[in-house]
């Protein structure tokens, strides 16, 4: 069943790159672009980004996050328990798995519910929208912070184990 493991790893990488790529897009490109657009008096503003780009980016973002986690869980297979229990050598991939799991919960439990208010998919007045925008922004920044060690531990489980022994 080596082919199955390869397919799981492939899907994990494809979905993971889509997820984290969009996370970095939000943090490195969209957030500063929106700030610049809002500060640009007389400019076109950021409404077009919110209306046309954000819903599509969030669609791929949240589903890629789920697919990444499911493919990662499948890939762990019998090591799932020992990884999440941070036992022995599996503590390395386990730390990555814990960070990825917290990030997934952040996407579906904090970022997406708040972005629904920003997008107008959930009723909210202007004050609630502003609060939701700030909460989603900070949750997205927290996920960016967590992604840095997460990627190290994911990579270190196959390459660089010696660093931890």
């Amino acid at each position: 069943m080596e082919w199955l493991s390869l397919v799981e790893r492939w899907v994990h990488f494809l979905a993971g790159i889509t997820w984290i790529g969009l996370l970095y897009y939000f943090n490195l490109v969209q957030a500063p672009a929106m700030a610049a657009a809002n500060a640009d008096q007389g400019g076109p503003g950021g409404a077009g980004i919110t209306k046309y780009v954000l819903p599509r980016a969030l669609l791929w973002f949240r589903w890629a996050a789920l697919v990444t986690w499911l493919a990662g869980a499948a890939l762990l297979g019998e090591r799932f328990g020992s990884a999440f229990a941070l036992q022995g050598q599996d503590a390395i991939i386990g730390m990555g798995a814990w960070l990825g799991t917290i990030m997934l919960l952040n996407v579906w439990g904090v970022i997406w519910p708040n972005q629904k208010k920003v997008l107008g998919l959930k009723p909210a007045d202007d004050a609630a929208k502003a609060k939701a925008r700030r909460t989603a922004f900070l949750a997205s920044r927290v996920n960016t912070v967590l992604s840095i060690p997460m990627l190290l531990f994911m990579g270190a489980s196959s390459h660089g184990m010696a660093l931890f022994s």
């Binding site: 490195l28 730390m95 920044r141 960016t144 912070v145 992604s147 840095i148 531990f153 660093l163 931890f164």
Partner: peptide
């Protein structure tokens, strides 16, 4: 005090610091 997460460099540095802390934790577990 300004929230480090409001700046992209504050976010990246926070991630690097967390990486160092967690690497020490994991090294203790392996």
């Amino acid at each position: 005090m300004k929230n480090p997460l409001d700046s992209i460099w504050g976010t990246i540095i926070s991630g690097l610091v967390l990486t160092a802390v967690l690497a020490v934790v994991v090294a203790g577990l392996v």
